[in-house]
Nucleic acid binder design. Structure first.
Lengths: 194, 194
DNA sequence: AAATAATATTAAACTAGTTTAACTTTTATT
DNA sequence: AATAAAAGTTAAACTAGTTTAATATTATTT
């Protein structure tokens, strides 16, 4: 399988010598999951940080009533994991399930720790990536507080046009924090406006 | 002013040699803000990452109608900044305002970059801290989707008992994503139950 | 101590979004 | 091509949380 997408992604942030590239490549595990398969299950320990090479996943929390709350979707060049479980190596709150056949490049927890020590620049890389994730979560939280559902939908549509095509509408509703019926109503309302 | 609280905080995650401590101490700027003063204002570039030594701040976004949406409170041993603005050095989305007289230890953007290069362990420290922030934001977002306002309030109360005492109730309502009137109703309802 | 400003409470009218349930459309399976 | 399963739509009844507005309480200033 192809390590190139991951290396290209990393090289946008830091430079890697050929030796460092080799070291990293050595530690990466490739795996292909089929549609509907779970990469991580709520309650298990998340042992891997996954970089999506192709395909699409949803990260979600199933509450006591069995209701799914979707945290994020990951497509090509995104990460998928339960970060909380990964960094503390304790039971995961989230599931990561494939919505399509999905190819991932995985870092094992211990390998990642040693890699970061051998290549300090990698530590910097992960700091930068996580900072960005933190910032976009903050912005999403604020949008959830300050915008009504319709505008949150329009924002998503505008920001991630490629994702909307690939996922069922009821999952997008869950991501937006509304019911599928209400998203349906919003969409028909938007159609009427034009 | 006292650098000790910051050093203690850092040393929970990484070891620092006396030389490294000195290097770090050199770069830290101390400053005291009065109640109601702004550490960062929406629209400005956030030039500093602030560690709160004493006092309390709120980080909030003011929307087009002037309504405040509180992202977080920071008390002793917490950070306060607009991370998005800090890492990209572009206009801030958030304000950071002091709710009490507040002492902070500040890292300038450029000093922090150089410090991280001189002391690679610091890069690791910040990665760890931000990872935790990311995880707690994810969990908060999920709580906002899956729990009704009353349970979100009880969770906050239980998780941050020290903060509830120090802030006006209408700010807590904003943090929880509800109106002050509704929080008031929730509280009287809780009293009736006991 | 009085006056003012800031914060908190209460209640009635309202609305954004949910629930339930029946129906339609699309996609996958035999 | 027929059947079943999954996804999407519509609409009526409902509810969690908002809005508005008046009042009460607590802190701050003079």
């Amino acid at each position: 399988m192809e390590i190139q997408p991951l290396l290209n992604y990393i090289k946008k942030e830091i430079d890697l010598t050929p030796d460092e590239e080799a070291l990293l490549t050595q530690k990466v595990i490739f795996r292909t999951y089929l549609k509907n398969q779970f990469i991580i299950q709520q309650g298990d320990v998340c042992k891997f940080q996954c970089f999506v090479i192709s395909g699409c996943t949803k990260t979600f929390y199933a509450d006591d009533d069995g209701q799914e709350h979707i945290m994020m979707f990951s497509i090509e060049d995104w990460w998928a994991s339960d970060m909380g479980s990964f960094i503390t190596q304790t039971a995961a709150d989230f599931n990561v399930q494939c919505l399509e056949k999905t190819q991932v490049a995985m870092f094992d927890y211990h390998d990642m720790e040693t890699l970061c020590k051998e290549i300090p620049k990698l530590e910097r890389f992960f700091r930068i990536i996580i900072q960005r994730g933190f910032v976009s979560l903050q912005k999403r939280l604020i949008r959830n507080f300050s915008l009504p559902a319709k505008e949150r939908y329009l924002y998503f549509r505008n920001q991630y046009p490629k994702i909307e095509q690939r996922i069922p509408q009821y999952m997008l509703a869950s991501y937006l924090g509304i019911t599928k019926e209400f998203l349906s109503k919003i969409k028909s309302q938007i159609l009427l406006e034009q």
